[in-house]
């Protein structure tokens, strides 16, 4: 099969690669770059465990082909902490007990991050809308909502 050359920004670093046109983005990130924080929970766009940020928007990486990211910017959970310092969402997920088995957590945090990028001060209903595509089988979502809410307050104070 003809390989396709792509260039993209991965967690702040410009990379070049040759990809098989049939490879899903999730597999590409996991297998080629060892970015295993992006998880596969369903493979059909229903669980959100594979959520990443593509040009500023949260997308399911199981539904995208690697060759589609040419020229784009990708942020995965591994790129969220700033030189070892956790992002406030990560801190608040820890603080609020929003994490149990952790399998849904990267996708959950990335979706929340994307929400706060687009809407720095979301109401609870908007948080629910933004996270509706991310399933968690362990928690009752309550602590996830409060972790995200807590992250808003911090944001306002910083501004």
């Amino acid at each position: 099969m003809q390989m396709i050359a792509i260039e993209f920004n991965l967690n702040g670093i410009l990379v070049k690669a040759e990809v098989n046109p049939g490879v899903r983005l999730i597999d590409f990130l996991r297998d080629e770059y060892g970015l295993t924080g992006t998880k596969e929970g369903c493979g059909i766009g229903e669980c959100g465990a594979c959520t990443i940020i593509l040009d500023g928007k949260a997308v399911n990486s199981c539904l995208i082909l690697a060759c589609q990211i040419d020229g784009k910017e990708i942020l995965t959970i591994e790129g969220l902490a700033n030189s070892g310092e956790l992002h406030r969402l990560q801190e608040n997920f820890l603080k609020k007990g929003a994490v149990q088995c952790g399998f849904c957590t990267p996708g959950m945090i990335i979706s929340a991050y994307s929400l706060l990028l687009l809407n720095p001060n979301p109401a609870e209903q908007e948080i629910r809308e933004a996270i509706a595509g991310n399933l968690c089988r362990c928690t009752g979502y309550k602590q996830i909502i409060s972790a995200i809410e807590e992250s808003i307050v911090v944001n306002i104070e910083n501004d």
């Binding site: 924080g37 591994e78 820890l94 957590t105």
Partner: peptide, 16 residues
């Protein structure tokens, strides 16, 4: 006290 693993979890570093 919180779940021990979670520091890894929130960074996508936990290994399954």
């Amino acid at each position: 006290m919180k779940n021990y693993d979670i520091h890894q979890h929130v960074q996508g570093k936990s290994i399954f």
